[in-house]
Simulated scan of single mutants.
Amino acid sequence: MTLAAALLAGCASGPVYRAAPAPGDYGYRDTQLTAQQFRVSFAGDSGVARETVENFALFRAAEVAIAHGAPRFQVTSRETAPITSHSDYGPSANVGYGWGFPYWGTGVGYSTGGASRTRYETSLLIRIGPDVPAQAADVFDAREVKANLAAMVAARQT
């Protein structure tokens, strides 16, 4: 039992903040839509809290802004959605019997099987460039966001 728990923990301990290697995988993705607009998303694996997924999307937005020489970015749209998957192991029936002097017995069991897992994905539309005001609703200082969230991102890498 302990070995199984250790193996499962090892599978779940991979890096959380990373580029998504393929569609449907967890990690970040960003797409430049125009010279000043980007779509930035982060999909968490199951077990990653919604707040963490939202913070990682903001961290990636800050990285995108800095990489394009922008001191700040404005979030013009945001959406976080739960994605639930269900694994169906199918029904199973078991019949058993046993005895021990002077008793004996039989039993029948039925299980529907299956498990549900929920993960979160956040998608942001951000705007960078000279038209982004210094202060307004949903305007973030890119370096400040990156500095404030860096410890959390680093902590989720091991």
Rank of each mutant, 00 (worst) to 15 (best):
M1E: 07
A5R: 15
L7G: 03
A9N: 10
S13E: 04
G14K: 08
Y17C: 01
R18P: 03
A19W: 06
A22N: 09
Y26M: 06
R29T: 14
T31P: 00
Q32K: 14
L33R: 15
A35Y: 08
S41C: 02
F42N: 09
A43N: 09
V48C: 00
A49Y: 00
R50P: 00
T52E: 06
F56S: 06
A61F: 05
A62H: 03
A65C: 11
A67I: 01
G69W: 07
A70N: 05
A70S: 14
P71Y: 06
Q74G: 03
V75Q: 04
R78N: 02
T80Y: 04
A81C: 01
I83P: 00
T84D: 01
S85N: 12
S85P: 00
D88P: 00
G90K: 03
G90N: 04
P91T: 11
P91A: 12
G96Q: 11
Y97G: 15
W99F: 10
W99N: 11
F101L: 04
P102N: 09
Y103T: 09
Y103S: 07
W104A: 14
G107W: 14
Y110V: 09
S111V: 05
T112G: 03
G114A: 12
S123N: 11
L125A: 11
I126H: 02
I126P: 00
I128E: 03
I128K: 00
G129I: 01
G129V: 01
G129R: 01
P130I: 10
P130D: 10
P133N: 03
A134G: 15
A134C: 01
A137I: 04
F140H: 12
A142E: 05
A147C: 02
A147V: 04
L149C: 13
L149P: 05
L149F: 12
M152K: 14
M152T: 14
Q157F: 13
